[in-house]
Design a protein around this nucleic acid. Structure first.
Lengths: 175, 175
DNA sequence: ATCATCCGATTGCATTCAACAACCGGTGGT
DNA sequence: ACCACCGGTTGTTGAATGCAATCGGATGAT
C-alpha cells in the first residue's frame, strides 16, 4: 500500500529504481482487474458506499478485494473517506480531483471497448454518447462530479450523467 | 487465452454470463501489469522483436511474461506475427488497426500519469507533448503507425514520433 | 430487552499470476 | 567448429486474486 503522492505540484520525488514513465506508473497504479471498475461505479453509478459498490456492480467483486481496492485508492489520493451522518459506521467514499480527471481516460476506455469488443449494446450506448460528446461533454461531466463530490451539491437533473442514464434506460426499454 | 474477436463489425456475440460493459471488457483484456507497457514499447519505441522488447524496456519484463503477453495480444487481435526475412526464426510483431486506435487511450494514460504521479521529467515531456497536440496530433501519429505497421512503409523523419523522440533526447541532454 | 438487519470489513483456503533464473533447440556469421 | 543470437520454455517461489463464510458494532422495530 505504498502510495504515490496525490499532489501534482511537487515533481522530482523520483521513483527509487523503478521506471518513471507516465504510462508505466499509471498502469502500475490502476492496471489491475478492479481499480478502474470501482472508479467507474463511483463516477457513473453514483455509488459511494461499500455495500452499494459490492452489490450494484454488474461484475460481482468480492468483498475483500473491494476493501483492498478502496484502501489503495484512498491511499493513492483518488478517493476520500467521510463519515456518513445517517449511520455512525457508514462510510462515504468521494472522488478527488485526481480521480475526476480520469474521466477522459475512462471515456477512451469505454469508446475503445465499444468499438472493438463484444459489448452489450445498451451499455455501449453510454460510452459512445460520452465519447461523441468530445472534450466539451467531458468537461461538463467533470464539472458535475466536482460539484457533487468536492462541494457536496446535488446532481442536476439536466446534467450529463442524467442524460447518459436516460439514454441507457431508453435503450433497455426499446431493446 | 480465450480471445475476443478482433472484428468491430459483428455485434451481439454477447458475452456468456459476464459483464458486457465496455469499460469492464477493456479492463479485462488490457488491465494487467504488462499488456499496455508492451504496446507502448511497440508504438513509441518502435520495437518489433522479442529480444528488443525484452531488453530495451525500462521496466525489465520477464521473458515468460513477455511471451505470454505477446501470445495473448496476438490472440486478441492487437498484434500480428510475421516472419522476418533476415533470420528464419526471427518474428516480427506488428500493430493492428485495433491496437493503433489505442493511441488516444495511451495518450490519456500518459497525460494523467504526468500530471498526478512522480514521473521522470524527461519521460513526462513526450506524454505532455502528445496530449497537448490534441486529437489532431493523435491522428497524425496513428496515420504514421498505419503506414509502418499496416503498409510496411518507412517512418518519416519529420513525423510525430520523430518529433517526440527529439523532444525527449533534447530534454535528456539538457537535464 | 430482544432480535433481525445492515454496516464496513476480515479470515481461511484454493487458484492464478508475476518475478527470477536457468536453460532449450534452431540459425547465421566467421 | 565455434559462438553469439533467435524466440521462447521450464521450474520454482512468493504475491495477488477469487470465493465463501463470518466478524463485531450500530440501528430500528417490536
Amino acid at each position: 500500500m505504498d502510495t504515490p503522492h496525490p499532489e501534482p505540484a511537487d515533481r522530482l520525488p523520483v521513483p527509487p529504481g523503478k521506471s518513471g514513465c507516465p504510462i508505466n506508473l499509471t498502469v502500475e497504479l490502476l492496471g489491475d482487474r478492479w481499480s478502474l471498475v470501482v472508479l467507474r461505479d463511483v463516477m457513473f453509478g453514483g455509488h459511494r458506499h461499500f455495500r452499494e459498490l459490492l452489490g450494484h456492480s454488474v461484475e460481482g467483486i468480492a468483498s475483500n478485494i473491494l476493501a483492498a481496492r478502496l484502501t489503495k485508492l484512498v491511499g493513492a489520493g483518488l478517493l476520500t473517506r467521510h463519515d456518513d451522518p445517517s449511520h455512525r459506521q457508514k462510510i462515504e467514499y468521494r472522488l478527488t480531483e485526481a480521480a475526476i480527471e480520469l474521466v477522459p481516460l475512462l471515456t477512451q476506455l469505454g469508446a475503445w471497448g465499444a468499438r472493438w469488443l463484444p459489448t452489450t449494446p445498451e451499455l455501449a450506448i453510454r460510452a459512445q454518447l460520452l465519447a461523441r460528446g468530445g472534450p466539451e461533454m467531458g468537461e461538463r461531466f467533470m464539472a458535475e462530479l466536482r460539484a457533487t463530490h468536492l462541494e457536496g451539491r446535488p446532481l442536476p437533473s439536466d446534467g450529463v450523467l442524467a442524460e447518459l442514464t436516460r439514454a441507457y434506460e431508453r435503450a433497455v426499454a426499446e431493446g
